[in-house]
Design a protein around this nucleic acid. Structure first.
Lengths: 195, 195
DNA sequence: CTCCTTCCCTAACAAGTGTTTGGTAGGTTA
DNA sequence: TAACCTACCAAACACTTGTTAGGGAAGGAG
């Protein structure tokens, strides 16, 4: 009935890898079991459904992410510094939880409809409030441009950060901090050469 | 045995909507048939498999996209104007083929492994050659910054454009051209206020 | 040695999957 | 009228899906 937490985490990690590579619906419990070196039915000693594995992967990821974000938001930084810190923390999260981020990116939109994953919609709202609020604060403080549609800017910044999970591989030539630095430089200053 | 091309297109359009909303693997042929007002087996009068529907949706989309891109690349524009034209054409394509773009965005990565969808990988290479080449040309001509990792810049520009398909809805308050204009302004000039 | 817990296997289940086969209503052509 | 074609339905097929029930090997505790 009960199982050791370490084994659960191991199995969740391999399940997350398979989910990220193939997509949740295309992933069968037999594929997960194969990757874990056991048979399909044995997974049900540790988890009570395929859906609950997904649930645990996503909620663990979001808990960790919001711990980072809340710390940044509570630091009382200026708007530009807040954006910089949020982007940097996001890339650190992508670095540490690549699979979970990729799953979230791919599945959260249609999962949010289901009651069990309602917290995804809640998280998305907190997300929007944090980013959009910081951007508006920056426009008011005259550190960000006022001539842009602010919601378009929000989606632009949000998406450019998180899509990176689709190509990022840990251990590459750039550290998460270096990627964050260059991304921020492009978003804030643009790619065109100043004349 | 044979079927009218108009009916095929109608059915492919509804299939694309369902694929885009639910994901390819989560979409059953019965759901497609429901949306089309017929029974599952009847689809096989028009198509010989679920996979061939996906194939036709994606290849039609890519053909149309490359017709636009090739016209831009053949126009002999400067690097900055080429980027501007490519982005604008991309948003026009998102406007006209929202469902197909969303499917492509979501499924192309793991589909490219299958032999039948090898053209997806080919298209991705052409894609990289066109965008990366233009960016390098712009760095050489001193219209784009030289202090950024050029491949990072490429992925940044590419992703910011195409992720828009996940939230874009035709008939919104901004036309594709207006969205392209603001996106280009952010990518090229940045969101920070110049002092 | 015996009991008990942990962790996995074996074997099967019902429901759902993509697909096929044969039939048929209704319009078009000869 | 008779033959034919188009576009669909009805019913089933083999297979895969997530999930469950019972059993057993290994090892620690008494």
């Amino acid at each position: 009935m009960s199982a050791s937490p370490e084994r659960r985490e191991e199995l969740l990690a391999t399940a997350a890898e398979v989910f990220a590579a193939q997509g949740y619906d295309a992933t069968t419990v037999r594929k997960i079991a194969d990757a874990a070196g056991m048979l399909a039915g044995s997974l049900y000693y540790h988890f009570d459904s395929k859906e609950s594995m997904l649930d645990e992967i996503l909620s663990t990821f979001l808990d960790e992410l919001w711990a980072r974000y809340d710390a940044v938001l509570a630091a009382g930084l200026g708007p530009r510094e807040t954006i910089e810190a949020l982007v940097t923390e996001s890339f650190r999260e992508i670095d540490g939880q690549r699979a979970a981020v990729a799953i979230y990116q791919r599945e959260s939109k249609h999962l949010a409809r289901h009651a069990r994953f309602g917290y995804l919609a809640g998280s998305q709202q907190k997300f929007e409030k944090a980013w959009l609020g910081t951007l508006e604060r920056g426009v008011a403080a005259e550190v960000f441009r006022a001539d842009l549609d602010i919601r378009l800017t929000y989606r632009f910044v949000r998406d450019t950060v998180w899509v990176a999970a689709s190509w990022y591989r840990p251990g590459g030539q750039h550290s998460p901090e270096e990627i964050a630095r260059q991304y921020l430089s492009m978003v804030l200053e643009g790619v065109a050469l100043r004349t």
